[in-house]
Design a protein around this nucleic acid. Structure first.
Length: 596
RNA sequence: GGUCUCGUAGCUCAGCUGGAUAGAGCAACUGCCUUCUAAGCAGUAGGUCUUUGGUUCGAAUCCAAACGGGAUCACCA
C-alpha cells in the first residue's frame, strides 16, 4: 500500500515536471483518501500549483489525470471535481496487493525496535478496583500490545502502592471493628473486605471531626486531632519502625487484597511481567537527594529541607526531601524510575496515570533531565481523563464509584440475556456459553473505554453506555462470527483459502477494493496508534473495517457466485478480514468468537 | 489568580500533519430476513464545528483573545 502511494507520488512528480515544469519532490506529494461519494481511492489536490502552472485547478487535474492514466498501469481511471483529482486504481493492482497481504509479503514495519516499559494499573491496596481503574488497565494493556505489534520489546509493570497512611486507615478500622473477620468468614473478596474497612474508617473519622468542630475546634485542627486519625498516624510510624504486630496485620490484609486483585486481573484479562511494591521502593529516592545536592541541582533551605528549582523549565520550586529527612512522593518516583532503568535498560518508559498528575509527571521528568539521567527523555506520561458518571465525578469515599467486579458481572449478565433473546447459540456447551458471555461482556466494556481518545474525559452512563449495537465491541465481534460461519461453510465445500492466484479476476465490487485498502493499511494504522499511544486509533480502524465488510456482506453473495475464481477470492478475502479484525481486537485486549 | 486541558447533531464520540456538501453510534422515523448469522444493511430527519478576530486560494483543523467546563499549583499520595 505504501509502495503504491510512493509510486503514485513519484508519477505525479514526474507529471508536474513534464507538463508544467514544476519541481516538487515526491515526499511532498500528499495523497488523501477520496471521499466516498466520488469514484476513486486517492485524491490529489491541485490548488497549490495554480500559480506556478499558470492554469486553473481543473485544467491541471485534467492534464495530470490523463498523463497518469496513460503512463501508469495502476491508474485505471480518474475524475476531476474542482481542484480535486480522484484516481481510480485498477482491479489488477488491488488483487496484487491482496495477494501480497495473504502471503504476508507486505510487512511494512520501519520504526527501529525499542525497549519499552509500560507501567499501568498501579493500585492502592486499600480498596477494590473501580471503573476509573478499568480505563487505566485497559489502556495500559492495549498500549503495550500495540507497541509489541509495532515491533518494540515491551515489558508490563505494575507498581503497587502497598504502604502509607491510606493502608493504615483500613488497618485501624479493622482493628476496631474487624472481630477477626476474613474473606472466607465474610464470604467476600479480600479487596472488597479491606475496602469495607477503609470506608468504615472514613465514617468514624468524619463523625469525630464533626464532634470536635461542635466543641469549637477549627476544622483543619480537628482533621489532625481526630483520635482515629491519630491512631492511623501512629500505625504508620510503627510500620516504619518495623513493629512485628503491625507488619503482621499489614501483610495479612495486603495478602487478602492481592488475592482479590489477582482474581480481577485474570477476569479482565490483563497481566504484568513484573510487580514493584512501594514498600520496597519508597526509600530509594534518597540517594538522588545526595546526588542532586552534590551536583548543585538541589539546594537546602534553612530548616534542612531539600528543594529543586525548576523555574527555568517553566515550573516551580519543588520539595524533594522534608525537613525531618523523610521522602515525599516525588522522591520515591525518582528512585523507582532509576530502578526500572537498571532492571530494563529501557528506551521508553510509559506511565499510564490519570491527568490529575500531569504536573507531577512534568516535574519528575524535569528533575531527571536536570540530573542528566540518560533515560529522562524516554519518559512518557500517558495521561488519560477521568471517567465521569451522569451524577458527576466518582469518589471512592462517598460511595459514588462503579465497582469493577460488579460492573463486569452485570455486563456478563447483559450479554447472556441478549444472546439468549437472539437464540443463535444452539449446540454450544455450558462451558462455551460461559466463555462467550464473558468475551462479549469484556468486549463491550473494553471497546467502550478504549474507543475514546485517552486524553479526553469521558462519560459513562450505566443505563445507556453499554450497547451491543452500532459502534461497539460486540458489533465487531459479530462481524467476525459471521465470517467464521462463512469459513466453516467454505471448509465443508472444500474451498481452501490457499488459492492465491486471482490475477484474472475482473469487476471487483467497490466494497471489495474499499476493504482491501483498509486491510493494506493495517500496519500503518498500528504504527500511528503506537506513535500516539492511542488504542482509540485501533478501535476506530476495527470498527470501520467491520462496517465496510458488512456492506460487502449484504451486497455481494459469496456462495451463489458461479465464477470459481471469484468464489475463491471472496472466501479468501473474507478470511483475511476476519484475521485482521481478530488481530486488531487482540491489540485492544478483546477476543472474538466463532459464533454468537 | 498562575499554568495546563477540553468545548463538533438532543446524547456519546470520530475528524484536528489546513482541502470537496463536517462523519459514526445511540435516541426518532421508513424500508430490507424462502438466499452465507437482521447483534446486520440501506434511507429520512437532526450542525452559526462555543464566540470574535487573524493567517490562507481554502480553517472544525493553525494563531490570538473572550466565554464556558475540568485538572493542578501540599514538608498528601
Amino acid at each position: 500500500m505504501k509502495a503504491l502511494e510512493n509510486h503514485l507520488a513519484q508519477a505525479i512528480t514526474g507529471a508536474l515536471q513534464n507538463l508544467f515544469s514544476i519541481s516538487v519532490p515526491a515526499e511532498q506529494i500528499a495523497l488523501q483518501p477520496t471521499r466516498r461519494e466520488f469514484a476513486g481511492t486517492f485524491t490529489f489536490v491541485t490548488f497549490p500549483f495554480t500559480k506556478q502552472a499558470g492554469k486553473g485547478p481543473e485544467q491541471i487535474g485534467q492534464a495530470l489525470g490523463e498523463y497518469l492514466k496513460s503512463n501508469i498501469a495502476e491508474v485505471a481511471d480518474f475524475n476531476v471535481v474542482k481542484g480535486f483529482l480522484n484516481l481510480v486504481i485498477s482491479d489488477a493492482t488491488w488483487l496484487t496487493i491482496f495477494q501480497d497481504l495473504v502471503s504476508g509479503k507486505s510487512a511494512e514495519r520501519t520504526a527501529p525496535a525499542q525497549k519499552v516499559v509500560v507501567e499501568y494499573s498501579s493500585p492502592n491496596t486499600n480498596k477494590p478496583l473501580h471503573l476509573g481503574h478499568l480505563r487505566n488497565n485497559f489502556l495500559g494493556y492495549s498500549v503495550a500490545e500495540i507497541l509489541k505489534e509495532n515491533g518494540d520489546e515491551v515489558s508490563k509493570v505494575n507498581l503497587v502502592n502497598d504502604r502509607g497512611i491510606h493502608i493504615c486507615k483500613s488497618m485501624v478500622a479493622y482493628q476496631i471493628l474487624g472481630n477477626g473477620e476474613t474473606p472466607e468468614s465474610a464470604g467476600i473478596k479480600g479487596d472488597h473486605l479491606v475496602g469495607k474497612y477503609y470506608v468504615a474508617f472514613d465514617k468514624i473519622y468524619k463523625e469525630q471531626i464533626e464532634e470536635l468542630v461542635g466543641k469549637g475546634v477549627e476544622k483543619e485542627a480537628a482533621k489532625k486531632e481526630a483520635p482515629i486519625m491519630q491512631e492511623a498516624s501512629k500505625m504508620l510510624l510503627r510500620w516504619e519502625e518495623g513493629d512485628t504486630e503491625t507488619i503482621g496485620l499489614w501483610e495479612k490484609m495486603n495478602g487478602w487484597v492481592y488475592a482479590g486483585f489477582d482474581e480481577t486481573y485474570t477476569n479482565i484479562g490483563v497481566d504484568f511481567d513484573k510487580y514493584y511494591y512501594e514498600s520496597q521502593t519508597y526509600l530509594l529516592g534518597k540517594d538522588f537527594v545526595a546526588e542532586g545536592l552534590a551536583a548543585g541541582v538541589f539546594f537546602k533551605k534553612e530548616n534542612e529541607s531539600v528543594w529543586v528549582d525548576l523555574q527555568e523549565e517553566g515550573l516551580d520550586e519543588k520539595l524533594v526531601l522534608r525537613a525531618d529527612g523523610t521522602s515525599v512522593y516525588i522522591t520515591q518516583d525518582l528512585g523507582t524510575a532509576d530502578l526500572k532503568y537498571k532492571d530494563f535498560g529501557y528506551d521508553k518508559s510509559v506511565y499510564v496515570i490519570a491527568d490529575e498528575q500531569n504536573y507531577h509527571m512534568q516535574v519528575l521528568k524535569a528533575i531527571l533531565k536536570k540530573l542528566q539521567k540518560p533515560y529522562a527523555d524516554g519518559i512518557y506520561h500517558l495521561s488519560y481523563g477521568m471517567v465521569d458518571l451522569p451524577s458527576g465525578k466518582m469518589k471512592s469515599r462517598e460511595g459514588t464509584v462503579v465497582d469493577a467486579d460488579e460492573l463486569v458481572a452485570e455486563m456478563i449478565d447483559t450479554a447472556r440475556q441478549r444472546t439468549e433473546e437472539l437464540g443463535k447459540i444452539e449446540g454450544l456447551s455450558e462451558q462455551e456459553l460461559k466463555r462467550l458471555y464473558h468475551m462479549l461482556a469484556l468486549g463491550a466494556l473494553k471497546y467502550f473505554l478504549l474507543k475514546v481518545d485517552p486524553k479526553k474525559r469521558m462519560l459513562f452512563n450505566p443505563e445507556e453506555s453499554i450497547n451491543f449495537q452500532g459502534n461497539t465491541g460486540p458489533f465487531i465481534q459479530y462481524t467476525h462470527a459471521r465470517i467464521s460461519a462463512i469459513m466453516r461453510k467454505a471448509g465443508e465445500l472444500g474451498l481452501g483459502s490457499n488459492a492465491t492466484d486471482f490475477s484474472g479476476l475482473q469487476n471487483l465490487h467497490e466494497t471489495e477494493s474499499e476493504v482491501i485498502t483498509m486491510l493494506a493499511n493495517y500496519h500503518k494504522v498500528v504504527a500511528e496508534a503506537a506513535s500516539l499511544y492511542a488504542p482509540s486509533v485501533i478501535a476506530q480502524y476495527a470498527y470501520d473495517l467491520a462496517k465496510a465488510y458488512n456492506r460487502f456482506y449484504t451486497e455481494v453473495s459469496i456462495f451463489q457466485e458461479t465464477n470459481p475464481q471469484a468464489l475463491h477470492f471472496r472466501v479468501a478475502f473474507s478470511g483475511q478480514v476476519a484475521t485482521t479484525i481478530k488481530n486488531a481486537m487482540r491489540l485492544l485486549g478483546i477476543e472474538v468468537p466463532e459464533r454468537m
